[in-house]
């Protein structure tokens, strides 16, 4: 009873923490959902792009002593060409083969990058992130915000609005949507499908790179395997929201973040990593195409 009382009292604070965590999931989920929407591939290497973003940010602030925003920019500048290269080398040659071939290739890239970073770093142990944003705490009624949380919410929010505007109003955004509707027809309409796919990977990688720096800073830890679990959870978020749907990925990310923080607060801390998957299975069984996904009509 006492436990429950405490839980309720802390509820608003948990929501704030959950939304912060969820915003980082959403940033990464967007990359999964956009790529899946356009070439129906679970880009397993996306988690590693995020990991490399985090390392780039870490190097920038520790070695080059730049401020946090420059570090994020640098991470984006590293991740974008990396993701475009991955698509070019490991996915494009497999575009017309069986469904499993690009998946295995993606797993190969993922494993390759994990190993590569571990080799360069020397060991798989985590590194701390220096304090780049002052440890200030703001109080607002029953909840407290740390400055870091505020930065995450503002940056993630701004990036998502930027993405939304790009996809909705720019020419390349319209071409992206056309390509995800139908690959062949977009091609016939004179859209350079290869360029659009590269652009999609670039967009997703930019968000993941920024996400890597934000998370590294938030949890104060960066390691070569950090992309695995976060990557899988973010993919869950994308599926939860309805794969292929950009608002769906945002909603799914936030939903997952809040659920996870609540779950931990409710005393299921040791089950933390299972919460995302349990939710995913539940939602898929009730709504096979996710929260905001379009229903599929069987074509005969």
């Amino acid at each position: 009873m006492e436990h429950l009382h405490g839980f309720v009292q802390l509820l608003p604070q948990q929501v704030v923490n959950g939304v912060t965590l969820g915003a980082t999931y959403a940033l990464i989920a967007l990359g999964y959902t956009m790529v899946y929407g356009i070439i129906q591939l679970i880009n397993f290497a996306h988690g590693e792009v995020y990991m490399i973003g985090a390392f780039t940010g870490l190097i920038m602030v520790t070695v080059y002593k730049v401020n946090f925003f420059l570090a994020m920019l640098a991470a984006i500048l590293v991740c974008v060409p990396l993701a475009v290269l991955i698509e070019r080398v490991a996915y494009r040659p497999l575009r017309n083969s069986t469904r499993l071939a690009p998946l295995i290739s993606a797993l190969g890239v993922s494993l390759f990058l994990q190993t590569l970073v571990t080799l360069i770093k020397g060991d798989p142990n985590p590194l701390g992130f220096p304090e780049v944003v002052r440890d200030t705490v703001y109080r607002l009624g029953p909840v407290t915000f740390s400055l870091v949380q505020l930065v995450i919410l503002i940056v993630a929010g701004a990036l998502m609005i930027l993405l939304h505007l790009t996809v909705k109003y720019t020419k390349v955004g319209k071409a992206m949507r056309a390509t995800s509707e139908s690959y062949e027809i977009a091609n016939l309409m004179g859209i350079n499908v290869n360029r659009i796919i590269s652009f999609t990977f670039a967009l997703g990688a930019a968000l993941a790179g920024a996400g890597g720096v934000l998370v590294g800073m938030y949890v104060n830890s960066v390691n070569p395997l950090m992309g695995v679990v976060v990557g899988l959870k973010s993919f869950c978020a994308a599926v939860l929201g309805g794969i292929g749907s950009i608002p769906g990925a945002m909603l799914g990310g936030i939903f997952l973040g809040v659920a996870e923080v609540m779950g931990v607060a409710a005393g299921f801390g040791t089950y933390r990593d299972a919460i995302a998957f349990a939710l995913l299975i539940l939602v898929l069984l009730l709504r096979p195409t996710g929260l905001l996904g379009r229903p599929i009509q069987r074509k005969v």
């Binding site: 490991a90 040659p93 497999l94 295995i104 290739s105 494993l111 590569l116």
Partner: peptide, 21 residues
């Protein structure tokens, strides 16, 4: 030894590109 996982993972990608089936 040091590079075996690197080679292994690279082979996964190369295999799929040249023999996707």
């Amino acid at each position: 030894n040091k590079y075996r996982m690197l080679i292994y993972s690279a082979l996964m990608v190369i295999m799929m590109i040249f023999r996707p089936n």
